[in-house]
Computed example of a mutant assay.
Amino acid sequence: MDSEHLFCLFCGCPVPKHYDTFREENLNFSKGRPQFVPSDDENFHKRDEITIQLVDCPNCRNVSIDIIGKGRQFRNRIMNFNPISLAKSYPNYIPLTIREDYEEAHAILNLSPKASATLSRRCLQGMIRDFWQVSKRSLSDEIEAINDLVDPSTRKVLDALRKIGNIGAHPEKDINLIVDIEPLEAHKLLKFIELLMQKWYIERHDNETLLQDILDMDTNKQSQRKPKNS
């Protein structure tokens, strides 16, 4: 959360980083007992400590809370305290491996946005292989194979997600070149994965359920018909 804009863990909206929306406090044992110290106070010995960050979203009025560990023992670990998980719960007719990749991508969103983007890429590939029954040498080839099955705008974003996910999956040719992915950017990739879950799996399931309900209704009505009296 070092940039000038944060993002709300509840609604995903950007939140400007200033006094009214952002708080950060440190909890440590530097004075022999746990104590909250303002994060900008440099007059104490920093050891292993916990940093609590709060973001008050002006859009949805929810307060996001992250707990960040610093020092030798905690190794910069981040835990979402509120909300505990950003991941939506999806039905079992979506394959377990896809749901697990999606949930893990959410779990590490703040800890490693680059790794989260890589998992979104993996999630996308799993969805293409399962939903469209397409398996090629690479994700690029698989996206090309469904080119005529999706609308042009979706096709472009599929390829964009693939390329962004590659930043985390593959090192740059120049090892001194560092391309970062921000949490808000990784969050948008997950929102796109959620859109595909809705458009591909949930809408298909709902449509099939509706059609089957109508067929069952027809069967039931036909069984109730009586022959006309002659």
Rank of each mutant, 00 (worst) to 15 (best):
S140P: 03
L211K: 11
K31R: 09
K136G: 11
K136Y: 02
P227R: 02
N229C: 00
V37N: 02
Y93A: 06
D56Y: 13
I214F: 10
P183R: 03
A145L: 02
L189P: 01
H5K: 07
T118I: 02
L158G: 04
R225N: 06
N43A: 09
M1E: 12
N76S: 14
E103Q: 14
K70M: 09
A115D: 09
P171N: 04
D141E: 15
L139E: 04
V37Y: 00
I143R: 02
C13E: 15
Y93V: 11
L109P: 07
E194V: 08
F81S: 11
D159S: 11
D41V: 08
L215E: 15
C60Y: 04
K163G: 01
T154P: 01
P91T: 06
F74I: 06
W200A: 08
G126C: 08
N43F: 12
C123V: 10
S112Q: 08
L211D: 14
Q222H: 11
D101M: 01
L184P: 05
L9Y: 08
P183Q: 07
S3C: 02
K17M: 11
T21P: 02
E203R: 05
Y102F: 15
N166T: 06
R99P: 13
R121K: 09
C8D: 02
N43Q: 10
I52V: 15
V157E: 06
F81D: 10
E100I: 12
C8Y: 03
V179N: 11
F7N: 09
L215C: 02
I78Q: 07
E172D: 14
Q133T: 12
L210W: 01
F29W: 14
D206I: 07
K156N: 12
D101W: 00
N82A: 14
Q53W: 00
I50Y: 02
E208G: 02
N80I: 00
K173N: 14
D216L: 07
V63F: 01
Q224N: 12
F192L: 13
S138L: 00
S138T: 15
I108A: 04
G168T: 11
N220C: 01
E24W: 01
I68K: 09
K188M: 05
E49I: 03
Q198R: 10
R23W: 12
S120H: 01
L161I: 15
G32D: 00
Q224R: 12
D216A: 11
V134F: 06
A107D: 14
S85W: 00
S89F: 01
R75H: 09
D56H: 14
P83V: 08
I108Q: 01
R77F: 13
K17A: 13
N80Y: 06
L124G: 04
P38C: 04
L96G: 10
P152D: 09
Y201I: 08
L119A: 02
S135L: 03
L149V: 02
R47A: 13
